[in-house]
Simulated assay, not measured.
Amino acid sequence: MDKHELIPLFPLRSVLFPGGRLPLQIFEQRYLDLVSQCLRSDSGFGICLLKKGEETVRAGTSQQVHRTGTYARIVDWDKLPNGLLGITVEGTRKFRVQECWPRADKVLMATVEWADTDFVGQPAIEPSDDQAHLVDLLKDLMAHPLVENLGLEIDMRDQRQVAWRLAELLPVPADDKQRLLELDDTDERLRELENLLATVLRYTSS
């Protein structure tokens, strides 16, 4: 990929990390057209957490997104029982938005800079002994039927992948997940995950 690139954005109330999968229901015409274009050209789009506005744009409203997101490609699609188009996307690489604007069909476009860290395909980094409990926690989370259905492939011997998946799967607010995505250092992300996990455990035990 070039250092900078122009891509369409898909603003959501969710945070996606590289290697993660996210099921989406598509019903707005602008996104039906975007998905069709991506399937034809074997391209993708950026997923960014909404900072302001709603996922569905209405007259007189606008969307504002966080400036760090993840590029995603469509890995599966089907017509859902409710008649809507369902797709599953997989994150590939983190990016940072340089400029962002809506085009005529209201799809947000952005010039992005690809991150030097946090992308699929990097050499594995072995988790340390004191991170073994995080690996065990991730294995437990992966056993949940909803997570199993995503068909994730995870190398538990790579602390980068462990951090990505824990950041997605822990029951913490989206703003906390966004803060984790914005970190460039895996060790720092794992330390922050430890702090969030301690908060979750205190809340559930009180």
Rank of each mutant, 00 (worst) to 15 (best):
159 Q>M: 11
70 T>M: 04
1 M>Y: 07
189 R>Q: 15
23 P>E: 09
176 D>W: 06
160 R>G: 04
57 V>C: 07
124 A>C: 01
12 L>R: 02
63 Q>A: 10
203 Y>L: 14
117 T>G: 01
193 L>I: 12
204 T>H: 15
126 E>D: 03
145 P>S: 00
75 V>E: 10
56 T>Q: 12
137 L>Q: 01
11 P>H: 01
69 G>N: 04
188 E>G: 02
4 H>Q: 14
133 H>C: 07
56 T>V: 15
5 E>T: 12
50 L>D: 07
13 R>F: 05
163 A>G: 09
171 P>K: 08
71 Y>V: 14
67 R>P: 00
3 K>H: 10
14 S>T: 05
7 I>M: 08
119 F>H: 15
63 Q>F: 07
167 A>P: 05
141 L>Y: 09
12 L>E: 06
129 D>I: 15
79 K>Q: 14
136 D>C: 01
60 G>S: 08
39 L>I: 11
189 R>T: 06
201 L>R: 13
15 V>R: 10
187 D>Y: 02
173 P>L: 07
44 G>D: 06
126 E>G: 01
59 A>R: 11
23 P>I: 03
80 L>P: 11
31 Y>G: 04
129 D>N: 10
201 L>C: 08
121 G>T: 09
178 Q>Y: 02
146 L>W: 05
180 L>I: 02
148 E>C: 06
79 K>F: 14
14 S>H: 06
181 L>E: 01
204 T>Y: 09
1 M>Q: 09
75 V>R: 07
153 E>M: 08
142 M>T: 01
195 N>R: 14
138 L>H: 00
47 I>A: 08
68 T>L: 05
112 V>I: 13
102 P>L: 09
192 E>L: 13
